[in-house]
Amino acid sequence: MSRKFLFLSFLSFALIVASCGGNSEQPAQTQGSTLKEPGEDDANKVAASDPSVGIGKYDKVELSTPLDNGMIKAGEQAYDVKCGSCHKLTDEKLVGPGWKGVTERRKPEWIMNFVTNVDVMLDKDAEAQAMLEVCMVRMPNQNLSDAEARSLLEFMRHNDGVK
């Protein structure tokens, strides 16, 4: 087979391909799979029902008094390691807003959803997005366990003077 013939064949093949340019056939989409954000679908459902609780798996958080001292202590430990770099316990903004009064500003469900479902909240929750516009640094997802998140909430309530 001569080079010339090959070249011509290739050229005609190229022309055929080019003439199919408007074809709506999709390239192979079947290779592999995509990673699905777990729980995202559930999260959206909650959001639709009541925006003030945020987006995530918490639609009802039971609070009780007096506060649980064990949770306050665990919450403070988690705060020191995972939160204290950016949030003060006063009302002073550091990287993120100070925590003073946060349990009065936000529903407990919203707080729990925000700290456990950070990226979805920052992408879709109007209140979280408004905060991002002020702080300009996305709150890091600190991979809090459910227990850590609940302890933090107890620590926040303690910080806000709840007994």
């Binding site: 087979m1 090959l6 070249f7 290739f10 093949f13 391909v17 390239p27 192979a28 989409q29 290779q31 592999g32 799979s33 995509t34 990673l35």
Partner: peptide, 24 residues
Amino acid sequence: KSTESAVSGDAASKVYVAPGKYDE
């Protein structure tokens, strides 16, 4: 064989992994 003759027409679709998709 040169590249042109060694690679047949459907080779590209067999190695195309769309943006956001994973390799096998």
